[in-house]
Simulated scan of single mutants.
Amino acid sequence: MSRWSPRDAEGEPEGLILFDGVCVFCSRWVRYVIDRDPRARFSFMPIQSERGRALAARFGIDPKAPQTNAVIWNGRAWFKSDAALTVLGALPRTRRLAILKSVPRPVRDALYDLIARNRYRIFGRTQTCMVPSKSDRARFP
């Protein structure tokens, strides 16, 4: 079993996405999900928050140098490409992309890791976590 294999997430809220809040790419991902999630099934927590750091530690994510995001779905925590494809598979317009889970995880995660390693260099980094709009604040517990 890989370190990033899906695992039990008992007690965690369904649809919670744990993300790197200072990563511009990750913040854009959150905005992308919000804009395409009319049923508001997903909520968001930056790893840099107090609760985010605790959750990251529970799942083996280094909050100082996160290598993955995570999503809680069907009572399990999903990581790396599994997390992204799980979210995309739950959104109305991108549901078909879930078929990419048929690609072996090591292949998908190699691409995920390439982007993750270079995300600050390519997309940038902020000094503070993203601030949600008033209308979106309820989705950031």
Rank of each mutant, 00 (worst) to 15 (best):
Thr126Asp: 13
Ser102Leu: 15
Asp35Gly: 10
Leu97Met: 13
Val107Asn: 03
Leu111Arg: 01
Asn74Arg: 11
Arg51Cys: 02
Gly11Tyr: 02
Arg96Met: 07
Arg125Phe: 10
Trp78Val: 03
Asn118His: 15
Leu91Gln: 06
Arg58Asn: 05
Glu12Cys: 10
Ala110Cys: 03
Gly89Asp: 10
Arg36Met: 02
Thr94Asp: 00
Gly52Arg: 13
Leu16Phe: 02
Ile99Gln: 15
Ala56Gly: 02
Glu12Lys: 11
Ala65Ser: 12
Ile115Phe: 12
Asp136Met: 14
Arg41Ala: 06
Ala40Trp: 04
Gly124Pro: 06
Ser81Pro: 07
Arg58Pro: 11
Arg125Tyr: 10
Thr68Cys: 00
Ala98Pro: 00
Phe42Lys: 02
Gly60Trp: 02
Tyr112Gln: 04
Ile72Gly: 00
Ile72Gln: 00
Val131Arg: 12
Val103Lys: 05
Arg7Pro: 09
Pro13Leu: 05
Gly21Trp: 06
Leu55Met: 12
Ala138Asp: 14
Pro6Lys: 15
Val131Gly: 09
Asp82Lys: 08
Ala84His: 10
Gly89Thr: 05
Gln67Lys: 14
Ile72Ser: 06
Phe42Cys: 00
Ala56Glu: 01
Ala54Arg: 14
Gln48Arg: 14
Lys134Ile: 12
Arg137Asp: 08
Ile115Asp: 04
Leu91Trp: 14
Phe44Asn: 05
Trp4Thr: 01
Pro106Asp: 14
Ala54Asn: 12
Ala98Ser: 11
Cys129Pro: 01
Glu10Asn: 15
Arg96Glu: 06
Asn118Phe: 11
Ser81Ile: 07
Asn118Thr: 12
Arg139Gly: 06
Ile115Met: 11
Arg36Gln: 01
Val87Ile: 10
Pro13Thr: 08
Gln48Phe: 08
Arg39Cys: 07
Ser43Phe: 06
Gly75Gln: 04
Asp8Ser: 15
Ala54Cys: 13
Val33Asn: 01
Glu12Asp: 05
Asn74Cys: 08
Glu50Ala: 15
Leu85Pro: 01
Asn74Glu: 04
Asp8Tyr: 08
Arg105Pro: 13
Tyr112Phe: 09
Ser49Phe: 02
Glu10Val: 15
Ser27Arg: 13
Phe140Lys: 08
Gln48Glu: 08
Tyr112Lys: 05
Ser43Glu: 06
Ala56Ser: 07
Ala77Gly: 10
Ser133Met: 15
Ala40Gly: 07
Leu100Gly: 09
Asp8Glu: 15
Val103Gly: 05
Ala110Gly: 10
Arg28Lys: 14
Phe44Pro: 04
Arg53Glu: 14
Val24Phe: 03
Asp109Asn: 12
Trp73Ile: 00
Ser135Val: 15
Ala83Thr: 05
Ile99Lys: 13
